[in-house]
């Protein structure tokens, strides 16, 4: 019996941890712009290629 109460509390704590992570991510502005970061990822590569290409010249 006690073990169920313990397990439940533990699971709630884990869930609270994730809730905290979510709240932190909202607070730090990660949901403010859902377009730019996703596309920025693609640029870094091509950017480096470009500069590498330029250096060769």
């Amino acid at each position: 019996m006690i073990v169920i109460i313990f397990l439940l509390s533990a699971s709630l704590l884990v869930a609270l941890f994730f809730l905290g992570a979510y709240l932190w991510s909202v607070c730090s502005g990660q949901f403010d712009d859902d377009y730019a970061p996703a596309h920025r990822i693609f640029f870094e590569d091509s950017n480096n290629n470009d500069t590498a290409h330029n250096n060769e010249k």
Binding site: A15, L19, Y22, L23, V26, F31, D32
Partner: peptide, 16 residues
């Protein structure tokens, strides 16, 4: 931006 974040907080906590 403030109200958009507030909605996200509310949704997160209520969903949890």
């Amino acid at each position: 931006t403030y109200s958009a974040r507030k909605a996200a907080y509310k949704l997160g906590i209520t969903g949890f």
